[in-house]
Design a protein around this nucleic acid. Structure first.
Length: 181
DNA sequence: CATCCAGTATATA
DNA sequence: TATATACTGGATG
């Protein structure tokens, strides 16, 4: 009874992302699998290859609309990974979040390339200045990282803060858009 | 209800 | 600089 998503891979320069689409738009974006652990375990690779084959098969039967959305996702993702501002984004389906989370995510989308805000500033912007820690939780629950730029939220006084996809990603994304911290 | 957290200001050394 | 602590509100089980 879980929600049905169309799942499609994105081969980017930094690895293979996975995008999932609802009927409303891009609902999830997943970072490439981390490559550090379990040397000699090929199951991860082969399951990835299987995912690519399955997705390629699906590609032939997904609606044109989703196919178009996916092309927009691919382009936007590559732009951001290159440190540029994407011209177009696919429609986003962020309906899976609570009202609070959606308010935070809406605020994240206002932070333009190369800029940052603190968790406290986000909390203040949505009118809940003491919910600072909860803002961190909502950032961590962001289902569409990179395109919804939770990496542009730093802790107070320029400290790096956390990142669900791993701090290496956060530092990489910020560095590519010229942010110092 | 209890527990967990991608936080922050303050105090102290 | 670093560590400790109190306080905080939302999500989760």
């Amino acid at each position: 009874m879980s929600k049905q998503f169309v799942e499609l891979p994105i081969s980017a320069a930094d690895g293979q992302f996975v995008a999932r689409y609802s009927a409303k738009g891009l609902a999830e974006l997943e970072f490439p699998p981390s490559n550090g652990r379990r040397r000699g375990d090929k199951s991860q690779i082969s399951s990835l290859a299987k995912s690519v084959r399955d997705s390629s098969r699906r590609l032939l039967q997904v609606p044109d609309e989703i196919h178009n959305w996916h092309r927009a996702t691919e382009t936007a993702l590559e732009e951001i990974l290159a440190g540029r501002a994407p011209k177009n984004l696919p429609p986003l389906d962020l309906s899976g979040g609570t009202e609070f989370q959606q308010a935070v995510w809406r605020e994240l989308r206002k932070i333009s390339r190369g800029k940052t805000k603190s968790y406290g500033e986000i909390a203040q912007a949505i009118g809940k200045d003491r919910a600072v820690r909860a803002v961190g939780g909502a950032c961590g629950a962001n289902p569409v990282p990179v395109l919804v730029p939770c990496h542009r939220v730093l802790a107070a006084h320029g400290k790096i803060g956390g990142f669900g996809g791993g701090l290496d990603w956060k530092r990489k994304l910020l560095a590519r858009e010229g942010v110092k911290f």
